[in-house]
Design a binder for these strands. Structure first.
Lengths: 212, 212, 212, 212
DNA sequence: TATGAATGAGCCTTCATTCAT
DNA sequence: TATGAATGAAGGCTCATTCAT
């Protein structure tokens, strides 16, 4: 028996790349097979359909994420550190699994299955987040803004947009200068933490800077 | 003469619906024609290609947006009010043109043309936003956080997610209860304004509420 | 009543041009209507089908030809002159009705109807040619080569090719230099008459020239 | 492995037949597939487009012709024999590759590509023909008629017409009796050679026959 | 008579999937 | 398990023809 597992992995890797670049419908099984260096028929030895292959591209990453998120935040006593930690984990995930997240976010609207999958992922995170929120309140006697969770998701989207802009620049697909959006990567997580904690009013007591 | 304009509008309306539901590739010209109650060939008397039809679905809305954004913010002297105004306009746009924005955001990654179109739209808004930011600073002696623009985009995405959740519920496509995310629509813009202004630390001096 | 005859003629003229350029299938009714400056529906006021329009392009010219050929060759007493006359008439026809002949020859293979039409035209000419042949023999005591009629058709094709080469050059469609085929138009009919009368052995008694 | 080569050949054979009968536009891929006993999609595993299939029908025959024409005429010392040889080769080509030549001649006017291809074929033959002509002159001290090449093409067209008449009769597509044109196939090449050498004045010294 | 919007059958082409080897 | 030729159901698009005005 030749390495069937390697073959399966090769297919998934190629599929992930092409699904992310061209979308689910835009990536043909022929292109995937060619990119994986195998024949078209072989795909159907390992997956019963193109849809199943799509799932195989996304699910393991999602599972990996759940695992990665399994951190005991209760040990973190500094609120800012806690926020930073969460942001860092997310940013890292987006960067490491860029292709998978592109697939996820782009196909989500068309696939009830993926949508439910992702929402159940969010639901799993919910209790964790609730606990974290309590922890946050305890730490800083902060008000918990109503609707904070959806605002938080939006914040996460900032990170996702950032990663996308970076990837686009890498591919030189974009005449776009990050400059237009005044993105300075060096401090982005610090700034985002400040923003989350204090909004545009800034850190209390800290001198107002006029930087951009 | 039969009503040529009505026909064209019917096609665009049907196309917008189907493009938004199934994506550009997923919506077939046959389905669009059927939904519009006309024959497939008729589409091609009004548009030279499916791509052109897509453009016809998106462009007028974008132009409408540019117009809608043409507000003189300098007259607004209250910072909170200014933030609320911007958020309200965006939320209204998302709600009124839900289908078009779905198309826009979902096809953006695959269409260099649309991407460039949207980025140039953003660029147009940039100087306006810069001026507004200065105005903001003047109003409240607020620090302008570095990277504020990308954070702002993320905040806008919160609104976009909100509209999506609402539409999904409307279609009963979703077993999802907004409750999971603790969304209470009544105060959402108020809360978001607070969040943008002061972050999770909340409005200074205001009693911390523990509501959700 | 506006000039319906003019309209009909305009349609035929445009159709002739387009059928000749693009072929019957390649010329669309839309293009014909546009070129004629009328609407597509109007074509069907004057012709029941595209096929009928094709016939209307070809038939009048064919009838005109029959008329033109109605010359009393018996009065011509010089054989060379007789041959020249026939060639001249044909060349003139090809030049004047270039478009129609293009249609005729190009669509002949696909249209049983046109083929039969053209063959019956040939058949009509047959008795005339027979009489002419007898006349020829009488004039010059020439042998009548067996199969002379099909050879004669081939000779006529030389003229047709000539006209085509000229038209192609006119359109600059062709990098082709008539030079390659050593065509010198000035003497072409003279030379062809010589060729028909004496073949490549040349006119007896005449000095052999080494011209090209 | 199934027989891929056989399949490709089957497609070409069917395409050649249908292109020749109905023309390029008149022959549909569906009809070709059905005639070849394969599915429509299979055509596109072997050819990237209908145009490429057309080329595949024509090119090999043209290449075969070039090869066939590679005869050393200098060894032929009898002029009549030389002429006969050339005519025989051409007639044989027309008969063997009847379908291909029909395609070639019928599509030539609409395809710049095929036209250029065929003209470059003619150009290749030109130097050969020039040499042959010199050879002819040497052999018989014959005059080289100006414009001989285009007249020669016309003569070749005689053969082409002949083959067409024969094929039409074979298909019983034609009420046409070759008799009308007084074609007697037995001696046709002999007669054509005579005609080319001596025109309608006939072979000098030979009794004038009054046969038809 | 003239219009031109509408039609719908049919064209070329693509692509996920199957199956004999 | 792997192959790759074959499939056939669409897909986007064209165009001769019709018909209400």
């Amino acid at each position: 028996m030749k390495q069937p597992i390697q073959t399966k992995e090769k297919i998934i890797t190629s599929a992930r790349k092409l699904f992310s670049e061209k979308g689910f419908k835009g990536a043909t099984t022929a292109a995937i097979a060619k990119s994986a260096g195998i024949s078209e028929g072989t795909i159907y030895r390992h997956f019963t359909s193109k849809e199943e292959l799509l799932a195989a591209c996304v699910i393991p990453v999602l599972e990996d994420l759940v695992e990665k998120m399994d951190i005991d935040f209760s040990k973190i006593q500094d609120l800012r550190k806690l926020v930073m930690t969460v942001l860092q984990i997310r940013l890292e995930s987006f960067e490491r699994h860029y292709e998978t997240f592109r697939i996820l976010f782009n196909e989500l609207p068309y696939s009830q299955e993926m949508l439910n999958g992702y929402l159940s992922f969010l639901a799993q995170q919910e209790s964790r987040l609730s606990r974290m929120t309590e922890h946050i309140q305890m730490l800083g006697n902060f008000s918990r803004s109503r609707n904070y969770m959806i605002f938080g998701l939006g914040q996460i989207m900032s990170l996702w947009l950032l990663v996308n802009f970076k990837e686009w620049q890498k591919d030189e697909k974009l005449a776009f200068s990050g400059g237009m959006l005044h993105i300075s990567e060096d401090h982005i997580l610090d700034d985002l933490a400040d923003y989350i904690l204090y909004g545009i009013s800034g850190v209390p007591g800290k001198e107002h800077e006029s930087r951009d």
